[in-house]
Amino acid sequence: MLMKREIDPTEKIQETKRDFLYLTTAAMGAVAAGAAIWPFIDSMNPAADVLALSTTEIDISQIAVGQAITAMWRGSPVFIRRRTEEEIKIARAVDIKTLPDPEKDEDRTKKDKDEWLVLVGVCTHLGCVPGNKASDSKGDFGGWLCPCHGSHYDTSGRIRKGPAPHNLAIPPYQFTNEKTLLIG
C-alpha cells in the first residue's frame, strides 16, 4: 500500500505537472522567506529620529575671522574655522607633493568661500578629537594638534606630522544663506 506507484498512462504529463508545482511552490516559499527576513534586517538601520538629526544647521554669523567653533554632527564634533588671510595663504603655498596625503586647499574648501574650513574633528589615526579651543595648541603647522599621539594638522586640516595617515575628513556641507551652514 505504501507509496505504491500506480501505472498511469499519462505518467509523463503528470511528472511535468508535478515538477512545475514543486518548483513553483519552492520558489514562492523562498521568496516568502527572503521577504520575511528583510524587515528584521532593515530594523537595524538607523531609525527615523536618528536620520532626522543626520543634518545639522549652524548659525555662522557670530564667528569672527580667526575663530573656530565646534558643532555636533552625527555624533561627532565638526570644526568650523573662519580662517585669516594669512592662514589661507600658508595653506595654499604648500607644495602638495611633500604632503603625506596630498590634497590642494582649494579642493578642501568651497569656491568663493575659502575663508571657511569645515572638518570632521576626528583624528584619522585612532579617533581622538584634536584641540579646537582658542587655548589649545594649534600644533607646529598652525592648525590642530591631536593630544593622543601628537598628530599635527595644518590650516587646511591636512596631516603634516605624526602617526595619522590621512587629512581630517570634510563632511558634506553647503551654505544655505549668508548666515547658515548646513552639514550633512
Binding site: L2, K4, A32
Partner: peptide, 18 residues
C-alpha cells in the same frame, strides 16, 4: 497563493498514500 500552492503540493505528495 503560496498556501494554495502548498496545499496542492501536499495533495500531490500524498496521492500515493492510502
Amino acid at each position: 497563493i503560496l498556501t494554495l500552492f502548498m496545499f496542492f503540493t501536499k495533495r500531490r505528495v500524498w496521492r500515493n498514500i492510502k
